[in-house]
Computed example of a mutant assay.
Amino acid sequence: MTVIVRAFRPEDASASAEVLRAALPFMVTTPEATLWDTSHAAPASHYQLFVAERGGEIVARAEAGIAHEASTPGQAFANVYVHPEHRGHGVGALVLRTAEEHVAGAGADTVYSWVLDEVPNRSFAERRGYRASRSAHFLRLDLANGTLPPLPELPADVELVPVSAWADDPRPMFELDAECTADEPGDLDAELDDFEEWLDSTWRHPLLDQELSTVALVDGTPAAFTAARTDGRTRYGSGMTGTSRAFRGRGLAKLAKTDSLRRARAAGYTEAFTGNDSDNGPMLAINKWFGYEICATEVRYVRDLG
């Protein structure tokens, strides 16, 4: 059966989102999010979503682009997802090659790709010249049947408020996000230095739930936050949780996340997902305290483009 790989079109949004849900059920996504990502990507990222058709059905997708926020130029990403029912037919190889050609044409000399820590997936990457780097975990929390810890009594100088309180002027949220992002462990560092780009990629993103995202204020200063990304139905995902350097060690991120998760459960969300770098011990410990359990592991693979 012929496989056709081509650039994403708006009418592919639902089918493309379904492929991602099937291949990586720990991710929170929607067709609206897919459309937003493809239409609001920063020009410097050269972001492109490719889809693969087999028998007229979209069975795979690949996200490819330049890591333009990284300090080292020439680094790119190419993440491939094949629907489980259509693996073993060469679809992944075709869509990966297309993605690699795209980033090479955009000036990349190194490409990174997330691969599930399973033998077939890792073998697929290694046969194509990729070598393993660091790993990260997906974690799941049963909001419907699990027991969330109670919200501790707040210190006198701490207040918890939803992110929506900055709807008129989100720049303080941008500055807090940028500081926390800079300290995230990973193969690719990231510097958030473009406020307008951040508004499009994060603040206005359809998955961001500003009401369920929580900020911890210390004497009125934004000190820690957790960003909630939801599908508007049952699934809640943690987009980012962090604390400003000046306020670390006080448990503020835990307070913010406790508040957000409890409000998400009250709003009817039944599953919560998050992801942590394997070396991010503090956040893994916090999530274990909440009751999250590791449900899958990804390994980041890297290849030098010839």
Rank of each mutant, 00 (worst) to 15 (best):
M240V: 11
S238C: 15
H89K: 09
A272V: 10
D194S: 13
G232N: 10
A144R: 15
T181E: 11
L96A: 04
L176V: 01
G242A: 04
F77D: 05
A78M: 00
E32D: 14
P162R: 07
P43V: 07
N276R: 08
V19A: 12
P25K: 08
H40A: 05
A42L: 05
A7M: 01
L261Y: 04
P222I: 01
E159M: 11
H83G: 00
A272F: 13
Y236R: 08
I4Q: 03
N121P: 05
S213R: 00
R263Y: 02
E159W: 07
W114Q: 05
G129E: 08
E53M: 00
G220V: 12
E100A: 12
A223S: 03
P84N: 06
D117R: 10
E179F: 12
L252V: 09
N145R: 15
E159Y: 10
P150I: 12
R128F: 00
N121H: 14
A182P: 08
H205Y: 05
R54K: 13
D231N: 11
E211H: 02
Y112D: 03
H46L: 05
R97S: 15
H68C: 13
D219M: 08
V28P: 05
A216L: 04
V3S: 06
A256N: 04
L24V: 15
V115N: 04
R134A: 15
R300N: 12
N79S: 07
V111N: 09
R235C: 06
E118Q: 15
G88L: 14
R122E: 11
D187Y: 13
P155V: 03
D168G: 12
R235Y: 03
E298W: 05
L284Q: 04
H102I: 02
D183R: 13
E53S: 00
M27G: 08
L188N: 10
Q210H: 15
S278Q: 14
S164P: 01
I4F: 05
